[in-house]
Amino acid sequence: MYLPDFEYYAPDSIAEACQLLSQFGAKAKVLAGGTDMVVKMKNELLAPEVVVSVKNLEQLKKIEYVAGKGVCVGALCTHNDLVKSDVLKERYPSVANAARQMANNQVRNRGTVGGNISNAVPSADLPPIFIALNATAKLVGTKGERTVAMEDLFTGPGKTVMAQDELIAEVFIPDQKMTGSNYIKFGLRKSGALAVVGVAVAVQVENGVIKDARVALGAVAATPVRAKKTEEFLKGKNATDDVLAEAGVIASGECKPISDIRASAEYRTDLVRIFTKRALRKAVDEGHV
């Protein structure tokens, strides 16, 4: 196993990075943590002629709360940055918790938020919780920047709406009325396993009544998907076990999983039912967003 030949750039600014991506077009790939990309290159599944490392873009490594607006997560934050972030622990522990469930400690030390999202693997752990929390991604390209809702970012396995010259700069989680959120990842062992199913939920509960809900499912379709029928069903209902169980049944009808080396489609479908119910229960009971 050895890396193929490639040209290597490590720009010092976002503008310069976008310029390089624009210049080399499809020949170029962005390198952040490399936890997926380098392995693929060694396994001959990927052979970019140009590698643009974004490791020098220090401004993308911050997690901050913008007063009155929301939490801004820089795209170059590692998963362990999320795990250890006081801002997230205080405001969105569910995001820190989703990051903690990823891969293993070594990967969490290197892998980045931007990489996890732009790689667009259906089983990625961060997109579902970001979608449930109505997060957006700020994309920067040679023609300027734009903001895309996380749920609109993915178009297929490995595919996003991002243009060739665009980078993810940050993820923004807006202040919201949701009272609880949760992500449950189900893998085939406790660490170092891809999600067979990932369920993220956010709920707004007042006096035991669900005012609003967002449910996002990972690893059970070509992209992370929102379970909109489930959300509609939940609105206005009392958060009883029966209601949450029914929500699980509805969610299991909203996914389109495949069978692969890890799990069959029917198993994944039933796991969506189980974990939607459990994630909702936890979000309702534990109360913090």
């Binding site: 293993n104 660490s191 170092g192 891809l194």
Partner: peptide, 15 residues
Amino acid sequence: LNGNFAEYRLPTALD
């Protein structure tokens, strides 16, 4: 199909 430690799943310390 699974000649690696990602898909040939040995238990981890947590398991």
